[in-house]
């Protein structure tokens, strides 16, 4: 186990390094930040001073090494626009995004697993067909349009829920979140449901597919033949075996939700990382873009590692070793 984790961590460092090169080079190719950040009527002297101050006069590889050296001590550069450390900007926005993604994951699990189980166990009933049809709609709805429709119906027409911002932020056990105030909760509902819907549909379909395949397996037939109650067959034999694909997908989906929050945050003006990255792309704020992408890569690597470790806990057949292809 320890060997596995150490090896995976070493792999992760390599991936991070590769990604840092790709991201750094890619982001550098976007354009010349000098033209955007320095006012056009600045004279030659001011321009050069600014270029030197931002470190843009060094050769590319030297800029990369400076970047890498600073990254190692947690300094990913200063935002050109906000003139603040990029990493601090990211960390300021991260709680809002994580809060949104977390709420969405919990919502989609609460809705998805029971509905998927039902649809898998009784595939022929009208309710099941309805659930599946609904899941296809939920799966197919483009997040951005669905968000617009939520705003139209619940904010403009009915006026029930606010459609922009994060609302009042409460604090509980030292954690600051809008989930702890009534106003904050009202603000979180629309964006979270918007983010959760597609995910819930995916979980329904995955659970149903898993149940249908598992029910045909010999061990389920045997458990039935043994005379076990159907509750035990479903609760122990079926559920345990569909947990494996579920954990994988949920793990990956958390990562996906954090990324897709870009869209939801833009529509609902949610002050998270996603909105920050869109703004940074538009303003060519390179350090923030690089910092955001590196943080996302780091986040994904951690999530993947947790998923792999969870595997071995759920399924003792999975041995945590380097599988030789």
């Amino acid at each position: 186990m320890t060997v596995f984790i150490v090896r995976r961590l070493m792999q992760s460092v390599v991936i991070l390094l590769v990604m840092s090169v790709i991201v750094f080079l890619g982001v550098f190719a976007i354009g010349n930040p000098v033209d955007i950040l320095i006012s056009p009527d600045a004279d030659q002297l001011e321009r050069e001073r600014a270029i030197r101050a931002l470190g843009l006069d060094l050769p590319l590889w030297e800029q990369y090494f400076v970047f890498l050296k600073n990254a190692a001590v947690g300094d990913l550069g200063r935002s050109f626009v906000f003139n603040e450390p990029a990493l601090r900007l990211i960390f300021e926005r991260m709680p809002a995004t994580l809060e949104l993604a977390f709420t969405a994951v919990v919502l989609s699990l609460i809705v998805g697993i029971p509905l998927g189980l039902y649809a898998g166990l009784r595939p022929q009933t009208v309710t099941s067909k309805g659930i599946m049809a609904g899941s296809i709609v939920g799966f197919s709805l483009p997040t951005f349009w669905q968000g617009l429709m939520f705003i139209m119906v619940f904010a403009v027409m009915l006026g029930w829920l606010p459609s922009t911002g994060r609302g009042q932020i409460g604090s509980f056990l030292g954690i600051k979140s809008s989930l702890f105030t009534q106003d904050g909760l009202a603000h979180v509902i629309l964006p979270a449901v918007n983010l959760a819907l597609g995910n819930a549909a995916l979980i329904i379909r995955l659970t149903r597919a898993g149940v249908r395949e598992t029910l045909l397996q010999d061990y389920v037939k045997f458990a039935r033949a043994k005379g076990l109650s159907s509750r035990r067959v479903v609760g122990v034999h079926v559920l345990k075996n569909i947990l494996i694909p579920l954990v994988t997908v949920v793990g990956l989906e958390i990562a996906g939700l954090i990324a897709f929050a870009v869209v939801t945050e833009s529509i609902f003006a949610w002050p998270g990382m996603g909105k920050l990255i869109i703004d940074s792309i538009n303003q060519l704020d390179r350090p923030v873009m690089v910092a955001y992408l590196m943080m996302i890569v780091l986040l994904f690597i951690i999530i993947n590692l947790i998923v792999d470790v969870l595997y071995s806990v759920i399924d003792p057949r999975v041995r945590l070793q380097d599988v030789k292809g």
């Binding site: 990562a255 996906g256 990324a259 897709f260 870009v262 869209v263 996302i296 994904f300």
Partner: peptide, 8 residues
């Protein structure tokens, strides 16, 4: 590539 969401 597959470990990153398409939109990203």
């Amino acid at each position: 590539q597959l470990s990153f969401p398409t939109i990203l």
